[in-house]
């Protein structure tokens, strides 16, 4: 037994590290879905949405009330319909679409920056309604015991449930990535990019740009609400205070760092900024005291700094947008890839 005494803590630490990594990657996958949603709106269409957390929150709450058991004593919320989890996710996506229409229809035709103000407002209002309105979503106490998908099956099969959650989140991320990738690479996506570059030109060639902007805003909202639904079932509990506006800014940082208008960049940004955000508390003890005690403020500062520095120094992000005409034809065709080879040979030849 003595032999293991020294190794045991190291093994536990490794297991802890592995658990941390699995949890971290699950979080990054869910955040990646959100960033993909924002990428449709901001990256491709140039529509500004400072209320990402509102869509996330509506998705989380909708899926929760659809799948939860009816309220018990001292609880009060609508729904509690005990529907299957996938139905909850569909309901969440529908709710995201409704919210996007409600916010987008009146404001998308106006100046772009009005939407920024309206969306940051809607996030604040929805949080305060969730906190205040009796009988809606159990106010500040939040909703608990949200069913966790496949938990019973996982334990029957002897699987570690954290890995199952990671697999679910990763599969949804992949599915959303494929949908967003194909949507944005299609002629539809090309109109979005035209609107982003110059809406009047797009309109002058006969594109109903207002409709396209609403469609892109709704698709983005649906994706964000789906991310919220997965989040709710992953944590099993939602409360209003979790949906702080800062969450929106974190998602924005991920998109700007990763590369607006590039879907792989969006996912990479979620990973890179996620590493900074979730990694800093891990090294808290190694930081000098002045920083260590204020680690949460320091990492907020870093988020703000990343937004500003990337906008100033690398506005295209880590993975810049690829200039494509369509998915069948890269800009400049094949010649652009061969031309440098040809010119490089020439001096020697």
């Amino acid at each position: 037994m003595d032999i293991y005494a020294g190794e045991l803590p190291a093994l536990i630490a490794l297991a802890g590290g592995l658990n941390w990594t699995v949890g971290f990657l699950t979080t990054v996958a869910i955040l990646g879905i959100l960033v993909l949603g924002l990428n449709i709106q901001w990256g491709y269409t140039g529509t500004i949405n400072f209320g990402v957390v509102a869509f996330f929150m509506v998705g989380a709450y909708t899926s929760a009330v659809l799948t939860l058991d009816p309220p018990r004593e001292f609880e009060s919320y609508v729904g509690g319909l005990e529907l299957p989890v996938p139905v909850g996710w569909l309901g969440a996506m529908l709710a995201g679409a409704v919210l996007a229409l409600a916010v987008g229809l009146p404001t998308l035709r106006l100046r772009d920056d009005f939407l920024a103000i309206a969306t940051i407002g809607i996030a604040t209002i929805l949080r305060s309604i969730a906190n205040t309105q009796e009988g809606l979503v159990n106010r500040a106490r939040g909703l608990n015991g949200i069913p966790r998908p496949l938990q019973q099956q996982a334990s029957d099969a002897g699987l570690d449930y954290d890995w199952v959650l990671l697999a679910i989140a990763a599969l949804v991320l992949l599915a959303v990535y494929l949908v967003v990738h194909h949507a944005t690479a299609s002629p539809w996506g090309r109109v979005l990019r035209a609107i982003r570059e110059n809406e009047e030109t797009a309109r002058s060639v006969g594109k109903p740009t207002a409709n396209y902007r609403v469609q892109s805003f709704v698709l983005g909202g649906v994706v964000m609400a789906l991310a919220g639904a997965i989040w709710a079932h992953r944590t099993g509990t939602v409360a209003p205070d979790a949906f702080d506006n800062f969450f929106t800014f974190l998602v924005w940082t991920m998109l700007i760092v990763g590369g607006s208008g590039n879907n792989r960049g969006a996912v990479l940004g979620a990973l890179a900024v996620g590493l900074v955000w979730f990694g800093i508390p891990l090294v808290q003890e190694d930081l000098p005291d002045a920083l260590g005690t204020r680690v949460f403020q320091v990492r907020q500062m870093l988020i703000g700094l990343m937004i500003v520095l990337f906008l100033l120094l690398r506005p295209q992000g880590l993975l810049p947008e690829e200039k494509t005409v369509s998915r069948h034809l890269r800009a400049g065709g094949r010649r652009q890839t061969r031309w440098p080879l040809f010119t490089r040979r020439r001096p020697g030849g």
């Binding site: 990343m306 500003v308 906008l311």
Partner: peptide, 17 residues
Amino acid sequence: FLTLAVASLGIGIMLRA
């Protein structure tokens, strides 16, 4: 002007922190 608005968001975060 939207890029400037996003930048101001970053500055606001830094000020609060």
